[in-house]
Design a protein around this nucleic acid. Structure first.
Length: 481
DNA sequence: CGACGGGACGC
DNA sequence: CGACGGGACGC
């Protein structure tokens, strides 16, 4: 029919967003006159003057749809306040509210001049400005940084002076910047923390163990109120050579796996041996035998874990295997304090400083290829850790990993999956029991898959497969623009 | 079964 | 003040 139809199909009104003008005119202005006045600013897709149902007279309101937001913005900037026809009042021009919006306030320039972009973490604010100044004069740039470390979060804001400049930037800048209009800063946006992934969802799950959710655990870690005066005395004493027993027996009414007990007693450094006692049918008898490399660790473990509820409601009973010796003797006390000191220093200085206990842990039994200090417990014979490939390496292969019953922490995964070489990064899918491992070398990825598929790490069984290729980049913009 | 695509400002 | 019409393809 009418080739220059004024109709605007409903679904196009907000496509792209902010491409439609709301114009307040004199009632005598016609659609044709408006079209003529606005034609120079871009591709007009529709002009509509709102008229009274009965009288068919203009209500002095019109909508003009452009193909692009930048065209609409430019037209707004240029035409607002202009007299379209001799003897009539100047028109007012705004970006129209989206049809779904319930708001009745004009869209202000404030909401149209600031863009939100994703940038390399190495970008300075100067870099940001230099990148985006080609679309228009910039009022200011800011990069969102970690408040404490000052490091960039890879996100930034750019404020222009005119809506058309922001719109042109969004339309024309490199797609990798993911530029969108910034939301006004007043309203609280979504929380930035997605770290809830490793949570205890397993609730008594096989693999979890107490590690990581130490909050409700024994008071071992926050109680260092022992006397630390003159620690030198403890070090001259070679309590490792004592004949005091270092065997503990833990009894539990609830069914705990060997992995769970291992994780629990491995909190105290120096554990050498942990074995769940089983009957002739392989069923747990509710007892496990634990040996530490030194008396202090054993005393400390009994002190802290005897009576500890794990899982909550199940009180553990921890005893020395033979009860002949007096372990509250000064020697036992001092030995325990030495261990506590080591643990505290490892808390303060990080795991690397815990090397001090290494010589005390010469052997393992039942857990191949790992030291008792390691966080890794697995049925795989793991090669030693290898360096990661540089983060900007090109991914030649990706592995898709499914965890059961629950995902392993990322640092553990990195430790395990790096050992075949060329690992770039570990990516866990939040809220799911799956993840991706990026490798810079195909052979390394294949080796990791061959070695790890179907195996168990820290009580978590893994399926390790080649990942499907990533989805093609969708050309739809999910949000504004 | 078990799939990735992101995002927010000390007012 | 100044905020949302007309009309109806074809799977």
């Amino acid at each position: 029919m009418e080739e220059y139809s004024n109709k605007q199909s409903t679904e196009n009104l907000d496509d792209p967003p902010n491409s439609r003008l709301f114009v307040v005119t004199s009632r005598s202005i016609t659609e044709d006159e408006l079209r003529e006045s606005f034609a120079g600013f871009g591709d007009i897709q529709g002009v509509w003057v709102v008229k009274d149902k009965q009288t068919k007279e203009s209500k002095g309101i019109a909508y003009i749809k452009f193909a692009k937001s930048s065209q609409a913005c430019l037209a707004m900037e240029e035409m607002h306040g202009k007299v379209v026809m001799e003897g009539t009042k100047p028109i007012k021009v705004f970006i129209a509210q989206s049809r779904s919006s319930t708001r009745h306030r004009d869209v202000e320039d404030e909401e149209l001049t600031r863009i939100f972009v994703m940038i390399p973490k190495t970008f300075s604010e100067e870099d940001l400005k230099n990148t985006f100044k080609e679309y228009g004069e910039i009022e200011y740039c800011v990069i969102i940084k970690n408040k404490f470390t000052g490091e960039s979060k890879g996100l930034g804001y750019v404020r222009y002076y005119k809506p058309s400049q922001a719109a042109v930037a969004i339309e024309n800048c490199d797609k990798t910047y993911r530029a969108i209009l910034a939301e006004p800063r007043n309203k609280a946006s979504v929380s930035e923390d997605y770290n809830s992934g490793a949570g205890g969802g397993g609730g008594g799950g096989v693999g979890g163990g107490p590690r990581g959710d130490y909050g409700g655990g024994p008071d071992a870690m926050n109680q260092y109120a022992f006397n630390m005066g003159d620690p030198g005395n403890y070090q001259v004493m070679d309590y490792r050579s004592t004949d005091f027993t270092r065997f503990l027996m833990v009894s539990t009414r609830a069914a705990l796996s060997q992995e769970q007990i291992f994780s629990l007693f491995d909190i105290i450094p120096g554990m050498e041996y942990c074995e769940l006692q089983r009957d002739a049918y392989g069923m747990s008898k509710g007892h496990a035998l634990i040996r530490y490399s030194n008396l202090g660790s054993a005393v400390y473990a009994k002190e802290k874990l005897n009576g500890f509820e794990y899982p909550p409601g199940n009180k553990l009973v921890v005893n020395f295997v033979d009860d002949g010796e007096d372990r509250s003797s000064p020697v036992g006390r001092m030995a325990m304090q030495f261990v506590a000191t080591q643990m505290m220093s490892s808390v303060w200085n990080g795991p690397s400083s815990s090397q001090g206990l290494k010589p005390m842990q010469p052997l393992q039994q039942g857990y191949s290829g790992m030291s008792p200090m390691s966080r890794i417990q697995t049925d795989v014979s793991l090669p030693p850790p290898k360096k990661l490939a540089p983060p900007d390496s090109k991914a030649k292969e990706r592995l898709f990993v499914v965890f059961s019953p629950s995902p392993l922490p990322p640092d553990v995964l990195e430790d395990v999956f790096c050992r075949f070489g060329s690992l770039i990064e570990v990516h866990l899918v939040p809220g799911r029991k799956v993840g991706y491992m990026k490798y810079a070398d195909k052979q390394c990825a294949d080796d990791a898959m061959a070695a790890l598929h179907g195996h168990v790490v820290n009580g978590v069984k893994m399926k390790v497969m080649l990942a499907d290729p990533p989805r093609e980049e969708s050309h739809k913009r999910p949000r504004t623009y």
